[in-house]
Amino acid sequence: MWEYTDIVKEHFLNPKNVGEMKDASCVGEVGSIACGDALKLFLKIEDGIIRDASFQTFGCASAIASSSALTELVKGKTVDEAMKITNKDIAAALGGLPKEKMHCSVMGEEALEAAIKSYRGEDVGSHEHSEGEIVCECFGVTDEQILHAVRENDLKTIEDVTYYTKAGGGCAKCHEKIEALIAQARGEAAPTPAPAPKKLSNLQRMKLIEEVLEKEIRPRLQLDGGDIELADIDGLTVVVNLRGRCTGCPASQATVQGTVQGILREKVDPEIVVREA
C-alpha cells in the first residue's frame, strides 16, 4: 500500500474541478489508456489570466490527486506564471508524493504545457510526445522528456527516471539510452564501456583475483550448493579448492575450467590458468 499524504487522499476522495469544460479556451492531453494513466486538462483563459480549470483523469489515486491539485494551482495565475509551474510544484502542493508516483506530477506539468501551447497556437504535434525522439517504446517517452525530468528533478539513476517518467519501467531495453541521457543532462561524459585493460602489477592482480573469486564466483557456486577456496596464486596460475557440493562432483573439472577460469579470464587477465589443488 502506498503511503499517501492526507492532502493526496483529500484530493483523491474529493477531487476539485472534475469534468469536461464545454467552453474551454484550450485543452491539454497527455498519456494514454494503454500506459495506465491519461490526463485531459481544460483551461479557460481571459485577458491572459487563467479564470477556470478542470480535468478528466484516467489513473491511480495519485494521478487523480495531481490533476486536482494542478487545477487549483493554475486558477487565477497568468499564463506566463502558469508556464513556470513544474512537477515539483504539483508534488509540493500535495505535501509530497511517493517517489514511485512522481510520474503523476510530471503528467500534470506536461498537460499544462500542452494546454498553454495549444492556447498560444504553438504546434503540439500529432500526439503528446511530439518533441524529441522516442527512447522508451514501452511507454512512449522521448529523449526530451527524460532530459527535462533529469534536469528539473536532479535525477541520478535509471530507477529515478522510471519513477518520474515511467521510461524504462517495462522491457528494460531502453536502459542504456536512459543512462546516456542522464549523463548528458548532468553534463557528465557517458559511461564508457569497460575501460581498456591496464597492465596489472602482481600485487594488483592478486587482489583482483581474490575480489572476483569472493564477489562473483563464490556466490555463483554457492547457488548450486558448492563453494570454492583460493589456495594459491602463482603468477598467472590460480590454484583453488572446491568445497561443498562441488567436491568430487564429476562436473568439478568443468566448473574449474568453465566457470572459474572463464570469469577470471574475463575480469582479470585473459591468460589466467585455474587448476585444483
Binding site: 492531453e29 489508456i33 494503454a34 500506459c35 491519461a38 484516467f58 500526439h127 514501452c138 511507454f139
Partner: peptide, 22 residues
Amino acid sequence: SPYKQGAADPLSPLDSKPPCGC
C-alpha cells in the same frame, strides 16, 4: 475519467495516439 462509453467521440484524440507497447 476522460474515457467513456461509446468511446469514439470525445476520446478520439486520445485513442489515436500511437499504441504504447507496454
